[in-house]
Design a binder for these strands. Structure first.
Lengths: 114, 114
DNA sequence: TTCATGTGCAACTCAAGGATTGCACATCGG
DNA sequence: CCGATGTGCAATCCTTGAGTTGCACATGAA
């Protein structure tokens, strides 16, 4: 159940951890559907490296691939990113909540000590 | 300016990419202030490894350290996480926007072809 | 002071993954 | 059919980073 989310988050964060992959996502987002070969012309790495990155992005749910004739078109895919963003927001909120609780307790203790 | 955000995001995502570090953050969030030695008792890795992880987390702005006598207490720090969550939400929204635009254009072309 | 406990620094091991290269296979255009 | 272009697969190199170990230093408690 919630393990799905954990897996999603795990994959997305792992995929986003690499700068080259983030760059590729930017290119995909701006250019729409593109092939790995096209991307290779705009990035200082080999086509093969890009194919691997795209595979990681696709496995993480951040990209989709579609075959059109002899070429493969890749595009961005927002769902997993959205889910991860929500997860992160919830986590940050949780941290805020806990820290606020700790602070309240500390202030209460401070008050008692006087 | 916005490079600050990029650096923050870069650090946070890089820090969150490691499962052990995410686990440490969970422990910090639940236990409040703890020492590296205490954390080492609850995680199957050495204290030194944990110290390194905590250093990464602190560099990423996800944790703070405070010296109390001879021990060092670590705690969670929500700001950078919040900023990254907002960045990610904005990015996802941007993707949605672009995909919606592409879809509109495709539908218009479809309509014209009939 | 003396012992125990907690940190810090440094060198080292080792596996993971980013990147390249070479070649074989598929597909489109002439 | 045939050359050109785009993909896929596999072996390899090499850097990065997670983890360990050993030891020196600092601080608290007896």
């Amino acid at each position: 159940m919630t393990d799905d989310i954990r897996d999603t988050v795990d994959g997305v964060i792992g995929a986003l951890a690499d700068p080259t992959r983030r760059h590729l996502l930017d290119l995909l987002a701006t250019h729409g559907e593109v092939t790995a070969t096209t991307l290779a012309e705009q990035v200082p790495v080999s086509r093969q490296a890009i194919v691997k990155h795209l595979a990681v992005l696709e496995a993480a749910g951040l990209a989709t691939s579609r075959k059109s004739g002899r070429e493969v078109l890749y595009a961005v895919r927002p769902d997993a990113l959205n889910a991860t963003a929500r997860w992160m927001t919830a986590l940050a909120t949780e941290w805020d909540r806990r820290l606020a609780a700790v602070k309240r307790i500390a202030e209460a203790a401070e008050r008692d000590s006087r």
